[in-house]
Design a protein around this nucleic acid. Structure first.
Lengths: 241, 241, 241, 241
DNA sequence: TATGAATGAGTGTTCATTCAT
DNA sequence: TATGAATGAACACTCATTCAT
């Protein structure tokens, strides 16, 4: 006998379809640090041993490659599995479906972004206005983040369409960062026609989209581009001279 | 979830008329002027009479509604046809396939953007640096454009995945506008660490993404937001005081 | 382009997954009488024209053949479609899934059974105890019903596993008939150790299972068998001499 | 719903040991007596030690629980294994496949039924017509048998679909019992319109199905129900007064 | 003897597209 | 010009069974 039926209402295996809370660290299971403390949420509640962890990592990495090449929508589970050099069935041992895999990746990325946020809020010594180098440091960090997670950041927009849970993570991430930026700006520095909230979001918007457009145009984001954005942001927000 | 997409792998059955080139004027067929308020791109070379034009419009509008509700990927030909209160068969009388419909819509939007570009290049009297109001006028115009075509602008990114021809239209549109912006900036005004090309693109990036993020956050882009962006852009690029 | 994605949460088409109420007459759409007034519930709410009705009938009949040959579980949608000489896609135009098809068939059968029930309750002139011929008439009718719907009756048991809605229809059908039988028995005639409810159910049980077992043993239910059961039932319940 | 069953089309991968014939005594392997209280049928010829025996029992019991909850078709090897608190791999140490497990259970039940048959044939002293109490005793015994093996008896019908070997065991069991009942009836006692063979089968049918229908209706088979059936059978077959 | 991991054939279902009326 | 019906390629997903430890 080979494959077999569903027949009953829904899954039986403990794979807790679609649950994988975002707050639960992926690191707990893979043990593989991503950035410094990886995050992300696989499907199954199974506790993985080292072999399992390795396989899951392979799948996550393969997915990143596949998404990079064809985008999420065009990526078939088959593509991922092929890149990971594993089998179809194995995939479903670790993720309850394609969406679940995406969730895991996005969560990892979101956790990296969280780091950036921490940096941002912690860095500029209390009260002081950031100087050009502060700004540049942060923009540069964002750039690195974007590039590393390009396959995801590139389609942020579209991914948000897919799954409500995903929308929330993304919204959170952006909101939090925009807020942090807004705080840096400060009311007095901001001038009379600037709404700090909006300004913070605008900076984020610029950074995010700029990377996409440059990539789209076939030009990588180089040092000069980063300098340019730094100067723009600095002038726009902090240079009240 | 079950069956699934192609999206990428190209057609299997021969498409009656898979061309629908962008260069071919929509006006030729609809009789509606292209440039001022052009309309979609039908599949066949058929010249449409008034009933036909109406049906085609219904389909284009319906598509916009559908894309707005579910996004391009999740939209089924069925959805469009239902909203337009017409039949499956009729759809293919006007568009050679789903992509063709998308192309038609994007072309419409691109033509609107073209307008904006014309405005931009024409407006600031030769040689002069734009003032705050010039900038605001333009940003405001962009905002209007974005909002009107939200379903498309929202997923720019993702749509570009779908069809090479589409990529080209989008790239063109952005490149041209970024270029025009760059010209405004001018080398002398730009300061030593600004690359005008990059700066132009950055402004575009900010405007484009800001709208999305605001919508995402559930806040519309109001006058204050536009003021804020205007001030930021103005300071960043033209306020060398 | 060919097949296509799901991506979004659930079906979009009006196929009202799984709804198909049992009370809605199949005859309304097929126009094909089954028995005298056919019943059953197809999936889609689409109103069928004559061509559609024909196709749906073909599918229902094909399903009956397929279930007869291999049983519900072992029957593949593919089998049904092949027998009906139509395509996979067409199947899903008429039924939202295999279960839905089963529901339609069971509902048809249940409606036939309903007839039998009507006969039973109407027949024996008010108050009178049924005589041997009455009993035989009824058993014979049941037999005909069973044989015509053998593929379904045979697996009554198992089918009930599949879908809660189905359970209900089946339970109803049996309960109602058992009740009707119980009424025939009457308290005074029944003797001190007979519970009419139980007795009614027991008769039904016997009739139902007898057919299965005979078929299983390779012997059809012939006139003699029917006479035998008639005599047994008559003696057991009405012959208080 | 998605993927789906085979059920019919035979295995593809070679089954280590697909034999597990019914004639081979279970007792040989478990050391547990067959006939009096035999136990399941392992896959390989391995002689089991006490630990092995315990594991196998756990699996058989777990299967019974699982079948009870979801029915054979809907039961996954996984379910059994989980209930038994053992591993997937272990399962195949004791049974060559799912069918093999089923065979083991059915064989156990059949052996119990055999007992009943022995009782039946031995009991009513030679030549004598059974009296009401004889009948009741036997019906009561059958009831106990049914209840104890409900998960199997409930789907007799359906199980017979699965495996030819199984069909044979079941046919045998029923045939033998029906035959024994027929003998009790005796020609002269039977009256002119009764075929003893058919009558025997009819009684069996009634008993078997009655239990199912009562369970289905949510009413257990109580003493009164048994009395009722006893009276019915007694009157129908032996009460020629 | 026990176990977690891997495998992949087999099936249900979707939906773009074509066809006949 | 309009429409309902038909088609079938393409995928996602399940689960029995085997394997390596």
């Amino acid at each position: 006998m080979t494959a077999a039926p569903v027949e009953t209402k829904k899954p039986v295996r403990p794979t807790a379809d679609g649950t994988g809370s975002f707050t639960e660290s992926i690191a707990d299971r893979t043990g593989l640090p991503f950035g410094e403390d990886a995050v992300g949420a696989p499907a199954s509640r199974r506790v993985l041993r080292s072999q399992g962890k390795r396989t899951m990592r392979k799948l996550l990495d393969a997915a990143m490659v596949a998404f990079d090449q064809r985008g999420y929508h065009a990526t078939r589970v088959n593509d991922v599995v092929e890149i990971a050099k594993t089998s179809h069935g194995t995939f479903y041992l670790y993720f309850s479906n394609k969406e679940d895999l995406l969730r895991a990746l996005v969560t990892e990325a979101a956790s990296e972004a969280q780091h950036l946020y921490d940096t941002l809020t912690a860095a500029p010594e209390q009260g002081g206005t950031p100087d050009w180098d502060d700004v540049r440091g942060w923009i540069s960090a964002y750039s690195t983040l974007w590039v590393r997670n390009a396959p995801l950041f590139r389609s942020w927009t579209d991914l948000a369409t897919i799954d409500p849970e995903l929308i929330e993570v993304i919204r959170q991430t952006f909101t939090v960062m925009a807020e942090a930026l807004a705080q840096q700006i400060g009311p007095e520095a901001s001038g009379h026609i600037i709404d700090p909230q909006a300004a913070g979001l605008a900076v984020l918007a610029m950074l995010d989209r700029f990377h996409y457009l440059r990539e789209f145009a076939g030009q990588p984001v180089d040092e000069i581009a980063i300098d340019t954005m730094t100067t723009m942001v600095y002038r726009a927000l902090f240079n009240d001279a």
